[in-house]
Each structure stands twice: as C-alpha cells, then as structure tokens.
C-alpha cells in the first residue's frame, strides 16, 4: 500500500541504542524516522542533528527525522523497530499496539527480561499488539562503535522468513552484517543473560583481575546462558553465535559496555543505587539479574555466576564473598550439564 511505503522503517525509542540503529539506517540511505517521547528531543534531533542526552559526542545523519506522533509514523511504515529499555517496554508496546496492524513487521532490539513475569520482549509484543510477524535483533553492538562506523554483526531471529528477509534488507549495504535465524528464544535469552555476565566481568576488572579471569567468566557464563536457554526451549547452537558468545565477548571485554561499567564501579565499593542514579543510561543487567534469579529458583537450575551477581546486587554480599563463593564451588566435568 502506498501509505505503508512512505518510509522504510520506524525506530521506536530515542535512547542510545535506538538512536545508534536509526543513524546506521539513515546513513544507509533508508527512509527512517525515530519516535521519541519528548518534543524537545525531537526538535534537537531534527534541527541540531544531535541527541545530547544519550550520544552527546556524535552528529546524527541529516536525513534522520524524529517524530512524536506515533500513530502517523506507524501508519506510514512496513517495519517498526523497537529499542526501548525492558522496564518501560510493555507500556510503549501497548502504545504501539494501538496503531499497528497485521501486515506490519515488528522487531525489537531490547536485551532484557520483564522482572515480574519473566516474559521475553517478543512475548510482550505478542501480548500487547496484534502483530504476529515479530522478530528480535541481538548481537555484539556497542552503540558508540556503531556510531563510529566500525563494522559489526548481529542476528535477526524470527519464525517468519519475511521478517528476516525484510530486516536484513534494511541493513544491506551498511557496516552492520545482519545474519538470520529462527531461534527467537535463544536470541533473546542470549541478549539478556550476557548482561549478567558483563556485570561479573566488570567486577573482576574493577578488582584488578586479568584476562584469565575474564575468559573464565565468559566461558562459564556461556555455559550458564546455554543451560537457561535450553531449559526454556532454545537451540543450544544459538549460543555459539553472535547472540551468544559474540555478544558476551564484546560486553565483557569492553569498558564501553554499561553493564561492565556498573560491575567495575561495584568492585570499587560504590553503592548500586548511587551508581544507577548517576547515569542516564540503562544497565539492563541489573533488572535482568533479578528476573533470572526469581526464575531459576522456580526452575531448579543451578547458575552460580548469576546467583553470585544477584547476591552482590541485592543480597548484601561483598566483593570478597562473591569471589570466595565462586572459587569454593566444587569443580565438575566442564561440559557435563551441556550434554543434552
């Protein structure tokens, strides 16, 4: 329909990642709009080509247009791409649900899990909208590196071929290589769980530990991610790809990662509330740790790193106690619990 083709994609969410994705697509000559909540932010993006709150060091593409009228924007596009923190995801999804229709594609790039329900973002989209053609993007995509134009890769997972094809087409020709996959559960669990491991890697870095420790956390974290994912119905091989080990490597190694930064500051003895209050960016690992902790108790899964991070964040454990706990665990066969 002609109305649907007025633009190529609408990015919902003017935070760091939403702005980075929208910029990447605008640079790739796509007709892209970004929906933001505040009028001032829209004006700043449209007139000054900046998002001073989230990406102050970067100039945004001239052809990126910000809008605050969600209804009009959704009507004009075949694809809606949501990049909204998990905490407010359901509310914004419900607003999207007021306008979206069954022929449209709805993709999200949020790496989190809803605390109260342990629902994945695609499940929330299903509950809050009539959309069926739903997909999830995940991978090692640090926003500042995307803005700097460095090559990167990610996974678009959907049960619908059309979602995979259409989303890949948006990024074709850009510096983002978007691979396709069918395992939505694994993609979402990978994207969410890696933030917990990033918190632990940040703590290790903050305590002055070296690359050996980091590698230990990444590989054992991968094992925990796979155990949780498979228990929820994911394909174990997904965790060997961009949405699993790929994302873990980037997030755990890079000081640019928000979760890594939070972990490092915790290691220095800062209080969690103070850390969160001091930044306008969202560290998804913090709510995800709580969500996962609740769930794994019910599922009777043993995920020691996730447990230790939870105890450090919410259980009053000191850094020393976390180390003592993890090093005190008995050592079994490395892949024992991954032989399904």
């Amino acid at each position: 329909m002609s109305v649907r083709n007025a633009m190529d994609v609408l990015v919902v969410g003017g935070g760091t990642f939403g702005t980075a994705l929208a910029s990447l697509l605008a640079d790739n000559k796509r007709r892209v709009k970004i929906w933001v909540r505040r009028q001032e932010q829209a004006q700043e993006i449209n007139t000054e080509h900046r998002n001073s709150r989230y990406l102050p060091d970067f100039e945004l593409p001239q052809n990126l247009e910000a809008v605050i009228d969600m209804e009009q924007a959704i009507k004009s596009t075949p694809i809606v791409l949501m990049a909204i923190p998990s905490k407010s995801f359901r509310n914004v999804a419900r607003q999207v649900g007021e306008h979206i229709e069954g022929d449209q594609i709805l993709v999200h790039a949020t790496k989190g899990i809803e605390i109260e329900t342990f629902k994945r973002m695609s499940q929330i989209l299903k509950e809050e909208t009539c959309a069926l053609k739903i997909g999830a993007i995940s991978g090692p995509n640090l926003s500042k590196e995307l803005m700097a134009g460095h090559p990167a890769g990610a996974l678009i997972a959907s049960r619908y071929e059309e979602v995979i094809r259409s989303t890949q087409a948006l990024f074709r020709g850009s510096r983002m290589r978007l691979y396709g996959g069918r395992d939505v559960i694994g993609t979402e669990i990978g994207g969410a769980f890696k933030n917990i491991i990033a918190l632990s890697a940040g703590m290790a870095a903050g305590l002055g530990m070296g690359d050996n420790t980091k590698a230990l956390l990444i590989t054992r974290g991968l094992s925990e991610m796979a155990r949780l994912g498979v228990a929820m119905g994911a394909d174990v091989f997904t965790f060997g790809g961009l949405a699993g080990i790929g994302d873990l490597m980037a997030t755990c190694a890079s000081p640019l990662s928000r979760n890594h930064q939070v972990g490092a500051r915790l290691a220095k003895g800062e209080n969690l509330e103070d850390i969160l209050a001091s930044t306008n960016q969202v560290a998804e690992g913090v709510p995800t740790t709580e969500a996962v902790h609740r769930r794994i108790s019910a599922m009777k899964l043993d995920l020691p790193i996730a447990n230790a991070v939870y105890a450090r964040l919410y259980g009053g454990w000191t850094n020393e106690k976390v180390i003592e706990y993890l090093l005190g665990l008995s050592v079994g066969t490395e892949l024992a619990r991954l032989r399904f």
């Binding site: 329909m1 649907r4 419900r94 649900g97 007021e98 229709e101 069954g102 022929d103 449209q104 299903k126 509950e127 809050e128 909208t129 009539c130 069926l132």
Partner: peptide, 20 residues
Amino acid sequence: TSRDSRNRPVDRRRYVEING
C-alpha cells in the same frame, strides 16, 4: 470482530495482505 489480547479490534484481513 477479531480482538487482540487487549480486546482491541483487529483487521484480520491485513495479516494476509502483501502490497495491499
């Protein structure tokens, strides 16, 4: 009338449309 899980009406024909 088809309804979504928030009880909003859904135009079900849209699900099967390609280019309208």
